[in-house]
Nucleic acid binder design. Structure first.
Lengths: 374, 374
DNA sequence: CTGAAAGCGCTTACAG
DNA sequence: CTGAAAGCGCTTACAG
């Protein structure tokens, strides 16, 4: 009946944030009688083995006799024992945590990626810790170092554009922190990369517009400090060139992957004479901006102008007209990244994913149509 | 020079996932010579005190003489000592982790909330662990229990609709896990709640439409299993009633907070004769759906129909016309929730936030206008 | 294939 | 106001 006191609202002494040292101040010891969770010692006792042997079973060591293992597993099953991640973390000098370090302006990307990472971590012993950051900040690298070092993270996943920073991998290696970089091209050893091949998606956009008869084609790229912006531009322009259409630099404007920058760039393009008949935007956000600028300029879509985006996030279906765009399986990419990160240890080393499975694909909606007759 | 072997790709023995027991198999002990981070023992030695006294300083105990404290802090500063969260976690029987348990269909909400929680956790010792879940699953409660129990979380933040589940608080209390529920109304003691007062926002929407001369007004609510759906409906209908306009149940359709449900409900409403001149949707997603349905029905917005959403997420500015909506300061709400959670311990207990600061507010854009003349 | 001892880096429970 | 001893629940480093 002292439980209420202990568990109640004040909970003094429950945490470091409250400075009270309860027993020093209050004398009386109040231990709640709640059923204690079984520990490795309980399992060892019940299975009549040493805790080291239980530890071997927990960690899937092959150096355990089959019948011993079965006996221990039976006890584990019965008691519902789950090894304490904090204690394991301390003994391993390594927390059971995987970090996602991101600096991405698109919430949909962040949530899809998170979801995918958690898909890949299911049934693992790890939890996901999120760590947004600002790549432009002078403290960026220090911040990442502190995060990884203090928490002794098992590993981190780096989506773009954090993945593109070459200052991070050496720091991670120094801290013995595994990592996976997700990027549009291979920036590192294959087993620490998930490559999204953005140039393939951009090429599909180009072929789509060419097939519709477009020849006066413009591109609004993302920020050129993002590798994906380069790759999308390259894939697009190469696929155009393959069919004899040249993407001149005059027809490429650099946006910032934001809605507003899409509007601004489109204004410039639509004011030209002759006007482009098609615009490929580096992502859906900018494509949505093109739609707004076109409406303001009295340009009808897709009759006067075709627009293609990139990402196929929710917004692509919400705007009017719905966007033709390039679908990227972000969640699946996240699942693969987590999977590869977790399996980067021990003998499973070197497993590869099927890069075909995560290739970007064209999704045709109503923002693109035949090129207008001259 | 053995470092490369240790730090290289294989990293055997680095983790439980790889079952190898390096020294058992390989004999030779390979310790990387990397500078060890200082521990509490180093600080104690350098400051010529016991580690317990250093511990007191770390945990801000007042029971330390001022000059002793200063001496220890100087050493901590010099060495860059940061106490190991894993070790503290084990000793405290409580991890330095705060969980966000969510089941929310809107990525923008999730990301804003996360960002806010991290704002509130800055300079604290905690990290944020994300835990999406499915409230409709039969394993929902068990899943949450396991998460909290195994990780020995310091606390959790429950945004809607997870916050509305009354089965959770008893489980959390049993596990001595602090919690904050974020909801549209007070469902619990004030110090474990952040109340968003959705009825206030909905009332603002109602007054806006009344001021524009609308009288034939409809509402597409969210799923009635969400408390917010009730509150928004109630606030809206009470504010209409205050000016003599009755919101009949015939003029309320239940949506599901999704874009698609917005389209479906709007189709029904727009087929009626006489047609409503204004629709208040329970969130922006459904309002976006209303826009699509109106376009299909040849109903011009805002000329023939005014539309008001709720949330003021990015989509509100991307659709056409941009949505008049109710702005909710999600990030700030998250910051307050984290702040309140962390300060729920010790003597700071009972601190309240300024509920005025997070009140929802009307944002007028182009989807609403004067009621059409009859 | 298995185990006894020591240790991971902290805090608790006392004692002074 | 301060400290020595024990302990949190695991794994490592040996030894057999």
């Amino acid at each position: 009946m002292t439980q209420d006191v202990v568990r109640g609202a004040s909970r003094a002494g429950r945490s470091p944030a409250g400075w009270t040292e309860p027993t020093e101040d209050h004398g009386a010891q109040r231990v709640s009688e709640r059923a204690r969770r079984p520990t490795i010692n309980d399992i060892a006792r019940l299975a009549r083995v040493s805790k080291k042997t239980v530890s071997r079973v927990i960690n899937r060591s092959p150096l355990v006799r089959e019948d011993t293992r079965e006996r221990i597993n039976a006890v584990i099953e019965e008691t519902g024992f789950v090894p304490d991640p904090t204690a394991r973390g301390l003994a391993f000098r390594r927390a059971f945590l995987i970090g996602m370090i991101y600096d991405n302006p698109t919430p949909q990307y962040v949530v899809n990626m998170q979801q995918g990472l958690l898909d890949g971590m299911r049934d693992s012993d790890y939890e996901l810790v999120v760590h947004p950051c600002n790549r432009a900040s002078p403290d960026f690298v220090t911040d990442v170092r502190n995060f990884v070092e203090r928490q002794k993270l098992f590993g981190v996943v780096l989506p773009p554009s954090v993945s593109e920073d070459d200052r991070l991998p050496p720091i991670l290696r120094e801290n013995d922190c595994a990592y996976i970089r997700i990027a549009s091209v291979a920036l590192d050893e294959p087993d620490v990369m998930v490559v999204t091949n953005d140039h393939v998606g951009a090429a599909a956009a180009a072929r789509h517009l060419l097939a519709l008869g477009h020849r006066r084609i413009a591109h609004i790229s993302g920020l050129m400090t993002f590798r994906s912006a380069h790759e999308r531009r390259r894939g697009f322009s190469e696929a155009l060139a393959a069919q004899g259409v040249k993407l001149t630099s005059k027809n490429v404007l650099e946006g910032a992957y934001t809605f507003e920058s899409g509007i601004e760039c489109a204004k410039v393009l639509l004011a030209r004479s002759p006007r482009p008949t098609a615009i490929f935007a580096g992502n859906d956000e900018m494509a949505a901006g093109v739609l707004v600028a076109a409406r303001q300029a009295g340009v009808s879509i897709p009759h006067d102008l075709s627009v293609v985006g990139y990402d196929d996030f929710q917004i692509a279906e919400r705007v009017w007209p719905p966007l033709t765009t390039i679908h990227t399986p972000t969640r699946e990419i996240g699942r693969i990244a987590a999977d590869q990160l977790i399996r980067s240890t021990g003998d499973a080393h070197g497993i590869r994913y099927d890069s075909q499975a995560i290739l970007p694909t064209l999704v045709v909606r109503e923002s693109s149509g035949p090129a207008p007759a001259e």
